[in-house]
Design a protein around this nucleic acid. Structure first.
Length: 1010
RNA sequence: GCGGGGGUGCCCGAGCCAGGUCAAAGGGGUCGGGCUGAGGACCCGAUGGCGUAGGCCUGCGUGGGUUCAAAUCCCACCCCCCGCACCA
C-alpha cells in the first residue's frame, strides 16, 4: 500500500482511536492535569525535548523524540513525580527567511511540496511569503500535532525565541559568557553571495548544496628582477623543495594586482575572489601569460630560480591560477612536463635545459619508486595532461598514499639555499633539518607551511572545493572572510574540562553516547556565535550581529520555569535587565536592590526565584542523535559556564531517526508523512506505539504500514479482553494454580516494564505490553481450561492498562473507563511489583508442564500415532533435592564434581550410586537452562512432579492433542517404560512414552528408539 | 583521515554490555490448514538439513583465540552507514 498517499483512516478502528483521542484530550485539558505547580514536598521531574524549528510542518520523524519524552513524562508522573514537560518554538535562524522568500518568489517546486506532500491548504500559501507568518503558521501546525498526539505538555509555558522577554534572557547569557572570556573575535571564512552581499549556507544555494570551503597554501615565488610575486596555490606545501618550474595557463587571463601592499600575479578570476578575502585588492594591469614563459622566479624554500612554463591543465578559476610544478610527486605536473619535453625546440627557445626539469624525489613511500608520480601515471596509462579523469584518480591515490605512509627524505636539505654562504645557509637550513626532513608528510606539511609563513613567503587562500556552487539568485558563490567575527571559545581548556566533568557524571542514554560526547568536546574548537542576518537576538554589545541559532538555544529550558508566572504578572520585558536574571537564575544580588533597579516587585522576584530553584536543573533532556555534535554539546558547555553544579542537567536521552517503509524520508523522494496526517490515518496511539516499539533508542525506527496495522490489531484484541473481563462474572472460590500463576507472572511483568521505562528501553516495554501480556492472558485461559477467571485477572488487567498509559494514553483512558477505574489513568498510580506475590510452585509447575508439552509434541511429530495415550513417568519427590542442589551449584558456578560431592551426604547410602548418575544427567540437563529458572528450581525445597502435572493434565491434553495422559512415578511404572528411558529420566526430565490409545497394555504399538 | 554506529536465517530486525531454555524473539514473505460462493481480513500450523521417540549435524561478516560451553568475551582482517562545524 502506498502509505504516502493515504489520507483517510485506514479502518474503523483507526477512526475510533482518533475519536477517543480527541475526547480524552479535551478532558485532560479541562482538568488541567498537565499543568504542575511548585509543590516543595513532592519530588519534581523536569523533562524537555529539543523544540521544533517551524519552517515546515512536523512529520512523523519529528514526533519520535517528543513521543519518547512524553511517554517518559507520563511514566514519571504516574510514579508520583511532579512532572514538568513544556514546549517552545525556535524561530532563530535563516531557513525560515529563505523558505518564505522562495514562497514569495513563487518557487513552484516548494509550493507544490507544501501542498502535495505537507498538506498545506492552497489558500494559505500566499501568506507564507512573509517569514513571520510562515513561522507562525508552522508553529501552530506543530502545536496542534503535539496536542493531537496527546503529549502531556504544559502549554502555559510556551514561547518563541523572538519573544522580547526571552531575548532579554539571551542578552544576559551572552553578557555573562563575554564576562567569562568565552566570547572572542577573529576572522572566519564563509560561503558568500557577491550579489546579495550575504553569507550563504546550504539553504540558500541552488540544489541545496553546502558550499565546502577548503584552504590553499599560497607560496610566494618572486619574479626575477621585479617586486612581483607569483603566489603558487598548493595543498601540499611540503613539496616546495622539489619545484622544477611554475605553471601558468597560456590561454588564461592574468593580472598583476596589489594585494594588501604587495604585487601578486594571479588569474583575473583569482584577483576577483581575493577581493573577498583580503583587505585591499586592486588590479593594476593585465598580463599576457605567454609573455612570461621562460622567465624565472625564485623558490623561497630553496633559493633556486625556476622557469615559468605553459600548461593547459592549469585552471584559472581554481585558487590563484598559479601552480608550482613538482613532477616527482604530482601526476599532473609529471604529465604536463612529459608533454612539454616532447617539444625540446620549444624549451630551448625558452632557455630551459631539460636537465633542470628532472623530477626530484622528496618523499619515500612504500610501494613506489623514487618518482611515485611517474609510477602511477604509467600504471594508469595517462597519455597527456588532458586526461583529466585519469590524472584526478592518480592524484587522489598518490596524495593519499604519501599522506599516510610517506616520509620526507633526509636529503631535501641539500636543496635549501645551496648557493648561499655556509654560515648563512646553516641558519636557514636548521629549521628544515629539525622539523621537516625525515618527518612524516602530515608533520612536514604543517612545518613547511609554518616555516614559510614565518619567513613571509606563505599566505593562504580559501576556495569553494565543490565549486561551482550557485546562490539561488544564480550568482556563483565565493569565499568571503569575515573580520571581527564573534566566536564561542569552546577550545578553552578549562571550559572543556568542566564540560567533561558534567558528561562523566550525568546519566546519558544510551550509554554509548557518553564516549561520543567526550570526543566531541575534545575536537570542538571555536564556534561562530553570531551572524549577519536572520531572526534572533542582536548581540548586546554590537547589534549589527545576530546571535546564531544554535547559540541562543543552549540554556533556554531555564526560561520555562518562570515565563508563565512572569507573563501572568504582565512585566514589561524592558525591566528584565541582567540583574534580574542574576537574581532569579543565580540567586545573586539583594532582592530589594534588584527590585529597585528593575521595577519588578520583590514578591514576584522571590516567587520566580523559588520557581526556578524548584524546577531546575533539567532532569532529562531529549533529542535526536543528530544534535549530539552540536546542540547537546553546546547545551552542556553553556550550562557549565553559566550555572553552579547543582543546576547542571542530570540526564540526556538520545534517539535515532525514523524511516518510512525502510527509506529515509526526504523532500526529493516526496515520501514525508506529516504528523497530523499520520494521526488521522492510523490514530495517535498507533503512531505513538509504532514510534516507541519499532526500535530501541539509538536504532532507526522503520515506520511501515504493516507495523501500524499490527499495533492496531494488538490494541483491538486488548480492547476485546478488557471488554470481556469487564462483563465476566468472576470465579469466587479459592485460588487455583492458574490464578496463582497469573498473579506471580504479573509481578514479573511489572518489574520488567518498570525497569524498561526507567532505562528508556521503551521498545522492550512496548513489546511486553503489546505482545507478551496478551499472551499471558491467553495462556491463563488455557490453564483455566474453561473455568471462570478469578479476581486476579482484574488486578492483572488493571496493572496492564496503567502500564500501557504512557505508550497509548488515549486508549488506556478508554480502557480504564470501561474497567471502572477512578479518575484518569494518566494520573493513576504506577503499579509496584510485590515480591511476596511471587509463587515459585505455580511458575515452576507451568514451566515444567510446558517443557513436557514440547517434548510430547516433538515425539508426536516423529511417531505416527493417531490417538495418543501419553505416559509420563516422573521422578519421585525424594529425588527433587538433586535438582535444587544442582541448580544452586550451577548458579554458584561450581563444577559438576563439586556439586555431586556436596549432594551425596544428603542421599541414603544405598541410593548414592543411582543418585550420582542422575545428578550427572541433571547437571547436563540444567546446564543450558536460563538463570531465572535455575533460581526458581534452587529456591524450591520440595516439588512433587506427579502432583504438579496432575494439576495441569487437561492443559497438557489441550496443547498436545493427547487423548489420554497417565502420570506415574518412575519406580511404579513397571515395564510401561523401557529401561533406557527410565534410567535417563531425571527430575524435570520425565520419561515419556506414547502409545496408541485404545490398544490394551500388552500389545501397545509403541515404537522404540534404538 | 578522525570520531561514532553496524554486518544475524528468504527479507526486515531483536539478542551481544551481565557467555548456557539460542536453530536464535517479533514482523514480513512463502507454504499448508480453518473460515468464505471466491477473495480480502482474521485464526491455526510450518518455514536450515537429517532423523518413525524428546536426538544429531550445519549455522549469527572472515580468520584465529579464551572457555566444559561463544551470535554473545579477546585479537586480527574485510565490508557498509552516519557526523566532521557556523547549518537548523
Amino acid at each position: 500500500m502506498e502509505i504516502a498517499k493515504q489520507r483517510k483512516p485506514v479502518n474503523e478502528f483507526a477512526a475510533w482511536l482518533f475519536d477517543i483521542a480527541s475526547k480524552w484530550q479535551k478532558e485532560w485539558s479541562s482538568a488541567h492535569i498537565f499543568e504542575p505547580r511548585v509543590e516543595p514536598e513532592k519530588p519534581k521531574f523536569f523533562i524537555t525535548a529539543a523544540f521544533p524549528y517551524p519552517n515546515s510542518p512536523p512529520h512523523i520523524g519529528h514526533a519520535r523524540t517528543y513521543t519518547i519524552a512524553d511517554a517518559y513524562a507520563r511514566f514519571k508522573r504516574m510514579q508520583g513525580f511532579n512532572v514538568l514537560f513544556p514546549m517552545g518554538f525556535h524561530y532563530t535562524g535563516t531557513p525560515i527567511l529563505t523558505m518564505a522568500e522562495a514562497v514569495a518568489n513563487g518557487d513552484k517546486q516548494l509550493i507544490d511540496l507544501f501542498i502535495e506532500v505537507y498538506d498545506v491548504p492552497p489558500e494559505v500559501i500566499p501568506k507564507l511569503g512573509d517569514p513571520l507568518a510562515l513561522a507562525r503558521y508552522f508553529h501552530n501546525e506543530a502545536k496542534q500535532a503535539m496536542k493531537e498526539m496527546g503529549y502531556s505538555i504544559d502549554w502555559r509555558r510556551e514561547f518563541t525565541t523572538i519573544d522580547p522577554d526571552f531575548q532579554k534572557m539571551i542578552t544576559w547569557q551572552f553578557l555573562r559568557l563575554k564576562a567569562k572570556g568565552y566570547l572572542v573575535q577573529g576572522t572566519h571564512p564563509v560561503g558568500w553571495c557577491p550579489k546579495h552581499n550575504m553569507p550563504v549556507g546550504m539553504h540558500d544555494t541552488k540544489g541545496d548544496v553546502e558550499p565546502e570551503i577548503g584552504e590553499f597554501v599560497l607560496i610566494l615565488f618572486r619574479l626575477e628582477g621585479s617586486d612581483v610575486y607569483l603566489p603558487a596555490a598548493t595543498l601540499r606545501p611540503e613539496t616546495v623543495f622539489g619545484v622544477t618550474n611554475i605553471w601558468l595557463n597560456p590561454e588564461a587571463e592574468y593580472v598583476i594586482a596589489e594585494v594588501d601592499g604587495s604585487k601578486w600575479l594571479v588569474s583575473a578570476k583569482a584577483a576577483y575572489k581575493l577581493g573577498f578575502q583580503k583587505l585591499n585588492v586592486k588590479v593594476i594591469e593585465k598580463i599576457d601569460a605567454r609573455s612570461l614563459m621562460g622567465k624565472r622566479v625564485v623558490n623561497p624554500a630553496t633559493g633556486e630560480k625556476v622557469p615559468i612554463l605553459p600548461a593547459s591543465f592549469v585552471d584559472e578559476s581554481t585558487a590563484t591560477g598559479v601552480v608550482m610544478s613538482v613532477p616527482a610527486h604530482a601526476p599532473y605536473d609529471y604529465a604536463a612536463l612529459r608533454d612539454l619535453l616532447q617539444n625540446p625546440e620549444e624549451l630551448k627557445k625558452l632557455g630551459v635545459d631539460p636537465e633542470e626539469l628532472r623530477p626530484r624525489p622528496l618523499i619515500r613511500v612504500k610501494g613506489f619508486s623514487e618518482i611515485p608520480a611517474r609510477d602511477i601515471v604509467e600504471q594508469l596509462g595517462v597519455k597527456a595532461q588532458e586526461d583529466r579523469s585519469l590524472l584526478d584518480e592518480a592524484t587522489k591515490k598518490l596524495y593519499s598514499s604519501e599522506y599516510h605512509y610517506g616520509y620526507m627524505r633526509d636529503d631535501i636539505i641539500e636543496y635549501v639555499y645551496r648557493d648561499s654562504p655556509s654560515d648563512v645557509r646553516r641558519f636557514i637550513v636548521a629549521p628544515v633539518k629539525a622539523w621537516i626532513a625525515g618527518r612524516s608528510v602530515p608533520e612536514a606539511r604543517e612545518a613547511t607551511r609554518a616555516w614559510l609563513e614565518a619567513l613571509g613567503y606563505a599566505d593562504k587562500m580559501y576556495e569553494i572545493l565543490n565549486k561551482p556552487v550557485y546562490c539561488r539568485c544564480g550568482t556563483e558563490v565565493v569565499v568571503k572572510i569575515l573580520h571581527d567575527q564573534w566566536f564561542l571559545k569552546y577550545s578553552d581548556p578549562e571550559w572543556k574540562a568542566k564540560a567533561k566533568e558534567l558528561v562523566l557524571t550525568m546519566r546519558i542514554l544510551p550509554e554509548e553516547m557518553r564516549r561520543e560526547f567526550l570526543n566531541v568536546i575534545d575536537w570542538l574548537q571555536m564556534r561562530a556565535a553570531a551572524r549577519t542576518r536572520g531572526l534572533g537576538t542582536p548581540l548586546p554589545w554590537d547589534p549589527s550581529w545576530v546571535i546564531e541559532s544554535l547559540s541562543d538555544s543552549t540554556i533556554y529550558m531555564a526560561f520555562y520555569t518562570i515565563n508563565y508566572k512572569l507573563r501572568q504578572a504582565g512585566i514589561d520585558p524592558e525591566k528584565l535587565k541582567p540583574v534580574f536574571w542574576d537574581y532569579v537564575y543565580l540567586g545573586k544580588g539583594d532582592v530589594e536592590e534588584v527590585s529597585k533597579e528593575t521595577g519588578v516587585p520583590v514578591k514576584l522576584l522571590k516567587e520566580l526565584r523559588r520557581e526556578f530553584d524548584y524546577w531546575y536543573p533539567v532532569d532529562s533532556r531529549h533529542s535526536g542523535r543528530d544534535l549530539v555534535p552540536n546542540h547537546l554539546t553546546f547545551f552542556i558547555f553553556n550550562h557549565v559556564a553559566i550555572f553552579p553544579r547543582d543546576k547542571w542537567p542530570r540526564q540526556i536521552v538520545v534517539n535515532g531517526f525514523v524511516l518510512l517503509q525502510g527509506k529515509k524520508m526526504s523532500k526529493s523522494l516526496r515520501n514525508i508523512i506529516p504528523l497530523r496526517r499520520a494521526i488521522r490515518v492510523y490514530g495517535p496511539d498507533t503512531v505513538r506505539a509504532v514510534l516507541l516499539s519499532a526500535a530501541e533508542l539509538l536504532q532507526d525506527v522503520d515506520f511501515t504500514h504493516e507495523v501500524a496495522l499490527s499495533v492496531m490489531s494488538q490494541l483491538r484484541s486488548i480492547k476485546g479482553i478488557v471488554e470481556d473481563v469487564a462483563k465476566t462474572e468472576l470465579h469466587g472460590g479459592a485460588e487455583r494454580l492458574a490464578d496463582r500463576w497469573l498473579r506471580s507472572i504479573l509481578q514479573d511483568r511489572i518489574e520488567a516494564v518498570t525497569n524498561a521505562f526507567e532505562n528508556l528501553r521503551l521498545r522492550t516495554a512496548s513489546i511486553i505490553l503489546l505482545y507478551e501480556m496478551p499472551k499471558d492472558v491467553k495462556k491463563y485461559f488455557t490453564l483455566l481450561g474453561g473455568g471462570k477467571p478469578g479476581s486476579v485477572l482484574k488486578d492483572y488487567i488493571s496493572a496492564w492498562i496503567r502500564m500501557l498509559a504512557p505508550i497509548v494514553p488515549h486508549f488506556a483512558e478508554e480502557m480504564w473507563r470501561i474497567l471502572g477505574g477512578e479518575g484518569f489513568v494518566s494520573t493513576a498510580a504506577w503499579p509496584v511489583p510485590h515480591a511476596d506475590m511471587r509463587d515459585p510452585f505455580a511458575e515452576l509447575t507451568v514451566y515444567y508442564a510446558d517443557r513436557v508439552v514440547e517434548d510430547i509434541k516433538e515425539i508426536l511429530k516423529l511417531a505416527k500415532i493417531s490417538r495418543p495415550r501419553v505416559i509420563i513417568a516422573v521422578s519421585k519427590p525424594s529425588h527433587w533435592v538433586l535438582a535444587s542442589a544442582v541448580a544452586r551449584g550451577q548458579l554458584d558456578r561450581k563444577a559438576m564434581k563439586e556439586v555431586i560431592r556436596s549432594i551425596m551426604p544428603l542421599i541414603p547410602r544405598e541410593e548414592r550410586k543411582e543418585a550420582a548418575f542422575k545428578a550427572r544427567k541433571l547437571y547436563e540437563a540444567l546446564m543450558p537452562v536460563d538463570r531465572d529458572v535455575k533460581a526458581l528450581i534452587a529456591s524450591m525445597k520440595e516439588f512433587d512432579e506427579k502432583k504438579a502435572l496432575e494439576e495441569l493434565k487437561d492443559y497438557i491434553k489441550t496443547l498436545t492433542g493427547a487423548e489420554e495422559i497417565v502420570i506415574v512415578y518412575l519406580d511404579e511404572a513397571g515395564d510401561k517404560v523401557p529401561r533406557q528411558k527410565a534410567r535417563a529420566a531425571v527430575p524435570l526430565r520425565p520419561a515419556i512414552v506414547i502409545e496408541e490409545a485404545g490398544s490394551s497394555d500388552g500389545d501397545s504399538r509403541q515404537a522404540h528408539g534404538s
